[in-house]
Nucleic acid binder design. Structure first.
Lengths: 261, 261
DNA sequence: ACCTGAACACCGTTCAAGT
DNA sequence: ACCTGAACACCGTTCAAGT
């Protein structure tokens, strides 16, 4: 951006965000620079906030170190003081967004299953708002406060329902995985005519299958694609809660631990 | 997982069998140029075969249009005659790889649950061999023959087990989603010390949690991380099969259909 | 300690022009 | 019909040098 050089000398910036030359409006200033007379000091929180804003406006794909730096009137190198890499940035965005999940049902009245489903549905809804984020959420390992609060909420509800702790501990993984994957799928569908074609190809492949070679697909093709998404989602949650409740864990030596490798 | 390298041999060969990496290791020649005296004509199959090879050697991240073009001694623009875009390329690779899933158990003797689990485990094993592919598999919509064969196999086993068709049709989605997501997680863990740090941060966050604010996590921290991966995977499959078998579908108007949007 | 310019080593995709 | 060079518009990350 052209404005960048106007601010290139950084000596005027102070902690409270005052610069020496907030004046001299220029007619050809790009809109994105409008209303931002002073360049605020970089902070991790500020960087993440800007990243969320870009994602909201332009999608996750545009949340790049360079685009973000541009938005913050600096060079990409500067961001690496606060963020280790792009993956960590995405994880931070994700945790930020998880703050919007409604955990109210945890302390509400009513059937624990319905409240559990409500929390999970809220989770999907939040993720669905930001195409692409859910996809990165599938591999990201956020460790922020909002993510922890979500896990705590799910465990509390399962506990209330009398689900054995061991099953709950392992089951939470599956519940979140399903919620995230569902959102990711729909987000992917959102993105473009591109993916629409991919999906069309898929449905065509399913329907075009020969009853001789693929009898079960042929018999069920309609069913494989059928059902309003909310009904499928709800069925999925019920199914998972049933499975988690009723499937005892195997006997293992208690303290072996998963490693990422 | 340590087993991974045992499977590194090439099971998927090009149409005409020219893979170019069968023999004569050379110390100094760049590997990519070795053994390619004549430039073969471009074909879709040849392009995909080359892509699989690059993925095998250098990981999915390096399977780019440009890298692939280099491997095939041409310019990136040439590939667009055969492949619509990078996403389609990844989907094609995925389907190719799914050919390695062992569908033998479908027609074998024995308990249908165990055979179903065997097929799913084979699926995870195959995906685990190629870090990064599983991740793209979570959003890709392959419509190739191998993917269809896999779905048919799962449906056949569920049918044999007497699972109502409607539940089977919706459940297959979840089974594959779980298999893929599990592989993606471990593949991600594989990638780098980078991700290792992310994971360490996660476990530290879990353990560091206060028993006052997060009582359930505090009580279960060990359990959330515990268990040999194969035991967890197996429990997950049992749990899903139980849930699918025992959760009736809701009554809906039969023929509404999911759209990608 | 924080910030920067500049560089290194890459990307996907398009398109007019060639064969 | 297929293939290409060249261009457009981008990437992540590092690092020596500045303040």
């Amino acid at each position: 951006m052209f404005v960048k050089n106007l601010f290139a000398t950084n000596m005027f910036v102070t902690v409270d965000g005052m610069t020496g030359h907030s004046d001299t409006p220029r007619s050809d200033t790009p809109r994105s620079r409008r209303e931002r007379p002073a360049k605020p000091a970089l902070t991790r929180a500020g960087i993440i906030a800007a990243a969320v804003e870009i994602m909201r406006d332009e999608g996750l794909r545009r949340v790049t170190m360079r685009r973000l730096a541009e938005e913050l009137d600096t060079g990409p190198a500067s961001l690496y003081v606060y963020v280790r890499n792009t993956a960590e940035l995405h994880a931070a965005i994700l945790d930020e967004l998880l703050g919007a999940v409604d955990l109210g049902p945890v302390r509400a009245e009513g059937d624990w299953r319905e409240r559990l489903e409500a929390v999970l549905t809220s989770c999907v809804t939040v993720l669905l708002e930001y195409p692409g984020l859910a996809q990165s959420a599938l591999v990201a390992r956020p460790s922020g406060t909002h993510y922890l609060a979500l896990i705590e909420a799910l465990l509390a509800l399962l506990d209330e329902g009398g689900v054995p702790a061991g099953q709950a501990a392992w089951g939470v993984d599956l519940l979140l995985q399903y919620a995230t994957a569902t959102a990711a799928e729909h987000a992917a569908g959102d993105r473009a005519a591109d993916t629409r074609q991919e999906w069309d190809a898929f449905t065509r492949a399913l329907r075009g299958v020969s009853g001789r070679t693929h009898p079960h697909i042929a018999a069920l093709a309609g069913d494989l694609l059928s059902g309003p998404p909310p009904a499928r989602l709800s069925w999925g949650f019920h199914m998972l809660i049933n499975g988690i409740s009723h499937t005892p864990r195997p006997e293992t030596d208690a303290s072996s631990e998963i490693s990422p490798g």
